[in-house]
Amino acid sequence: MKIRAIMINTFREAIRDKVLYSLLFFALLMIGGSILLGRLTIGENIKIIKDMGLASISIFGLLIAIFVGIGLVYKEIDKKTIYTVIAKPVHRYQFLLGKYLGLILTLLVEVAIMSFGLLLLVLSYEGHVELSILKAILLILFELMTITAVAILFSSFSTPILSGLFTLAVYIAGHLSRDLLAFGVESESAMIKYSTAFIYYSLPNLDNFNIKGRVVHEVLVSWEYLSFAMLYGVLYISIILLLSMVIFQKRDFR
């Protein structure tokens, strides 16, 4: 009930923020713009549309997660609105969880709008929509949920600019972490082996969520794989949120 109230309040704040609408506008513009690019490639235009559309959902979702996500937690502390909430019979973990779920709800609505745009486009070109594209969108959503958890973790102790940079760094590194592990395996030095393995397991392996290429090129993505990726996401998010709660529980709101 309390978590739900904070979630709805966070969602309300996000949808009354102008930044969200400008990001959404550009995302839809990009998805629409894929028609033009598709025209340049003979016979491949539907692939371009799917590729650009999914990439747009992913990138703009990321921007929303970073800009809106980090801002929302930091603003509570900076504008001292958190004072009145913590002074009520609300546990700090309930506050953080409410904030996180509010952001997820915002992302869900945003991704739904962008996906609707893309699906409409695909439908008008192909006459039907394949399930695989929905699978790709589902995993994008899990990727965004993971990134939002990371953003919440950083913003529970850092400033918005640093949190933004850290989160972006984790996003990039999270897509390269598999390469890093491969590099460690090849290496002969034990230290490199262990440190690359440590980094690989601490950073989210965001490549797990990336099936865009396979979907565009019509390679089958099994339900087993999908379930594995989602389970991985849920576990990673739980650990990160737990860590954020511990940090948040200990800090003073000066």
Binding site: M1, A5, T84
Partner: peptide, 8 residues
Amino acid sequence: YFYGQLFG
């Protein structure tokens, strides 16, 4: 209303 909800 929001604060009322925080008291359940």
